[in-house]
């Protein structure tokens, strides 16, 4: 009686969910980002983070970095589905390379006075966050690092008067001399 709602994923319930970072090189043409995002929403895949920017402007190549979650079979599907899109040159699973460096940047706004301000500055220093704006009752910190570090920083700031956070999402690159 307790059958799943679709015959497709019966097997998958038992498989572990993994997080993967994918780098996708695409032809930078109108609609390409819509195609990528449409693929994820249309097929029910998750996007944890997505960043995009042109990286080689003579060749009109953009690099999209996507952090996604799914079972190994779904992750494999996502890569194939991306790869078969016409404007996609290459898809690299950064997580599988084992040598991926991942960074994001966050700007964190805090409001407060007295002890909280002092504590916030002290923590910021420990996290190598920079003050990029200050008033007598607020700070904006800039912090870069991997997502876990940023999450941790934001958690610590919360009781100290956190107002808002703006994050860039993850960019990733592989260590060593080779490009993708």
């Amino acid at each position: 009686m307790n059958q799943p709602a679709s015959a497709y994923f019966m097997e998958e319930r038992h498989d572990p969910i993994e997080t993967h970072t994918l780098s996708v090189l695409v032809q930078n043409e109108p609609g390409v980002l819509a195609r990528v995002i449409g693929l994820f929403s249309g097929r029910g895949y998750n996007i944890e983070s997505l960043t995009v920017s042109e990286t080689e402007n003579q060749k009109h190549v953009s690099r999209i970095t996507i952090v996604t979650t799914g079972t190994p079979m779904v992750i494999e599907q996502i890569k194939h589905q991306l790869d078969r899109m016409i404007p996609v040159y290459r898809v690299v699973d950064m997580t599988l390379t084992g040598r991926s460096i991942e960074r994001e940047l966050a700007m964190v706004k805090l409001r407060g006075t007295g002890e909280h301000r002092v504590e916030a500055l002290r923590l910021a220093e420990a996290f190598r966050a920079r003050v990029i704006d200050a008033t007598i009752e607020s700070f904006v910190f800039e912090i870069t690092g991997n997502s876990a570090k940023i999450n941790q920083f934001i958690d610590l700031m919360r009781p100290l008067g956190l107002v808002e956070v703006s994050r860039t999402g993850v960019a990733a690159i592989v260590r060593g001399p080779e490009g993708m």
Binding site: Y8, M10, E11, M73, E76, Q77, H80, Q81, D83, R84
Partner: peptide, 22 residues
């Protein structure tokens, strides 16, 4: 799917890589 041809080795010829292991 979890009871599909349980004891076979499967060969799959397809022009579309996304059809494999879907």
């Amino acid at each position: 799917t979890d009871a599909f041809s349980p004891n076979s080795k499967k060969i799959h010829i397809d022009i579309d890589p996304s059809s494999i292991n879907k």
